[in-house]
Amino acid sequence: MSFLEYIIQQLINGLTIGAVYALIALGYTMVYGIIELINFAHGEIYMIGAYIGIITLGVLSAQGLTQSSLALAMGIVLVVSMVYCAAYGFTMERIAYRPLRQAPRLSPLITALGMSIFLQNYVMLTQGARDKFFPPLFTGGINIDEVRISYIQVFIMGISVLLMIALQLFIKNTRLGKAMRATAQDKKMASLVGINIDRVISITFIIGSSLAAVAGIMVGMYYGLVNFYIGYVAGLKAFTAAVLGGIGNIAGAMLGGFLLGLLEAFAAGFIPPPHGAQYKDVFAFTILVLVLIFRPSGLLGEQVAEKI
């Protein structure tokens, strides 16, 4: 493998991780944009999405659908998982965040952490502590000389970029998107001009959670294994990505996600072993601190005036 090929391979590796971070980060950033809450339980929603995906897939393959029509089966899995995640996100907001809308700022943070612990253990108790496996449905990839890229990697990157563009258009152009932006800027004023704030916030949670479901299923398919604590690490990284890009900003979440993924891949790939792989998170966090010192509200944080 030549040096150039090596760089390209690491680029692909990094972009794949980045796409995953970015997808989860979108949910963080949307919620933050609207109610300025770090929704620590968002990673858990992502985990629930992956689990629902596995469970639905299990039912479907028992019915023989995965063999006859894979595309249809995947469509059903995706829809079911999104519906369930949306339901979970919605319920979580109703139970844990809405009653605290007027409370001191850190209180909802604690309920978010409590929710996160609760959901993790709930899934562990009901589904067991052991790993669950996605059946390998999509295999194969493209080989260009020694550089390898699998179809599912292309798929992950494609979907996340597509979803981001769709989300951006939705927020810029639709009535609901406008209502969201208005709510993000000033809740009181927004309610005065006739926006139902509670509804807008609920919808934000629903959209963010369905995105997490997509992320959960894709990551589950790619890595092939799911357990009840995947949400924790992914959530932490996604949160970092969101802040790196400028939290509350959708393009920022995307940029932050990809950047973080690339940083990790290049740190692991170019710093001589064993330090590269072991210190890659230190490296990523150092870059984050440096970025924040010179741009205190993240890379794209200046557009934060319009938020979300």
């Binding site: 493998m1 090596y6 391979q9 690491q10 590796n13 990094g14 794949t16 991780i17 995953v20 990551v219 890595y223 604590y229 995947i230 924790y232 690490v233 992914a234 990790e264 891949a265 290049f266 740190a267 692991a268 790939g269 170019f270 072993p273 064993p274 590269g276 792989a277 072991q278 890659k280 998170d281």
Partner: peptide, 22 residues
């Protein structure tokens, strides 16, 4: 020829494996 630790809980080790492949 190659010795390294990896981070437990991560899901993606392609970067370090690519380095090992060299």
């Amino acid at each position: 020829v190659f010795y390294t630790g990896i981070v437990q809980g991560d899901k993606d080790y392609t970067a370090v494996l690519t380095a090992a492949k060299q």
